[in-house]
């Protein structure tokens, strides 16, 4: 009997220990999540404060940095956006138009286009593209700068690292994602119609664009601006936070990058879900 008990007891201890370990794991992750959200919230508020109060400070330094970010996250990604938008238009939208035509529902084309492209896929794709190309680069650059002591060097020169490193990235990414989304939507809508036209769908261009115009509401324009700007701000804040918030060693920069990408994807999708609710309420 004692043998059986002794055999059971360790197993029981093991279970308790495993439970405790699992609880610790979940608890630790929840605390980490809280800390990260707290830190990112603080960084966002500080960045907004610095951007407003130091708008006129060192314009000759900071404004070119903003332009550099727009060039990097906007102009240089334009060819990729054209390719993605054309592919999106042909594959997704063209197919949808074809499908609607098959069931005689051509009158809904405009509504479907606006819902799918303008409200959802356009901003989401542009944000994910910028995250993949520029967000990751942000973490690597800032993480390396922090690891190499460049942030302390800025502080030693009396240069505010938030003003010099974070503000240009936030403003640049917000403007870039907004601009890229506009191009992505326009090209996707055109290429979608082009595909449908080549598939001999009986839908005249005038009718197609009239449907689009009818389906678009003023709220779509306002929310598109907000949504894309917020996506850009979120990606910039999360990537800057991951790169700058903790003292990193060089070998930790890659982990910080993957962590930032995961957080940005979750954040962008959650924000997108919130905007869906806003669209439904409006």
């Amino acid at each position: 009997m004692s043998k059986i008990l002794s055999a059971i007891k360790p197993a029981d201890d093991l279970r308790k220990s495993a439970y405790r370990t699992y609880s610790n794991y979940v608890g630790r992750n929840l605390i980490d999540l809280y800390d990260d959200l707290h830190g990112m919230g603080a960084l966002l508020l500080i960045t907004i404060g610095v951007a407003v109060t130091k708008y006129d400070t060192a314009r000759e330094i900071v404004h070119p940095l903003v332009r550099k970010q727009i060039t990097r996250a906007g102009f240089r990604l334009f060819p990729m956006v054209v390719f993605l938008a054309a592919a999106l238009g042909m594959v997704v939208i063209g197919q949808t138009v074809l499908m609607l035509n098959r069931y005689g529902a051509q009158t809904y084309v405009g509504t479907v286009m606006v819902t799918v492209v303008v409200r959802e896929l356009g901003p989401l794709l542009a944000a994910l593209l910028v995250l993949a190309r520029i967000g990751t680069a942000n973490v690597v650059e800032l993480g390396t700068a922090r690891a190499m002591g460049e942030v302390e060097a800025l502080e030693a020169l009396g240069i505010d690292p938030i003003h010099y490193l974070v503000v240009p990235r936030v403003v640049g990414l917000a403007i870039s994602i907004f601009s890229l989304t506009i191009y992505l939507i326009l090209i996707a809508l055109f290429s979608g119609y082009l595909f449908a036209f080549l598939e001999a769908v009986p839908l005249l261009p005038g009718e197609y664009f009239r449907q689009l115009a009818n389906a678009l509401l003023w709220q779509d324009f306002v929310l598109l601006i907000f949504k894309t700007m917020i996506f850009g701000t979120l990606i910039a804040i999360v990537t800057c936070f991951e790169g700058l918030a903790h003292p990193l060693r060089l070998e930790e920069v890659s982990h910080a990058t993957t962590s930032a990408v995961s957080k940005c994807v979750v954040g962008v999708v959650l924000l997108d879900a919130i905007f869906v609710v806003v669209y439904l309420v409006l």
Binding site: T57, A58, R59, E60, I61, L157, I159
Partner: peptide, 9 residues
């Protein structure tokens, strides 16, 4: 950099 930042040059 420090000259441009602090003097606005």
């Amino acid at each position: 950099l420090p000259l441009c930042y602090h003097h606005g040059w």
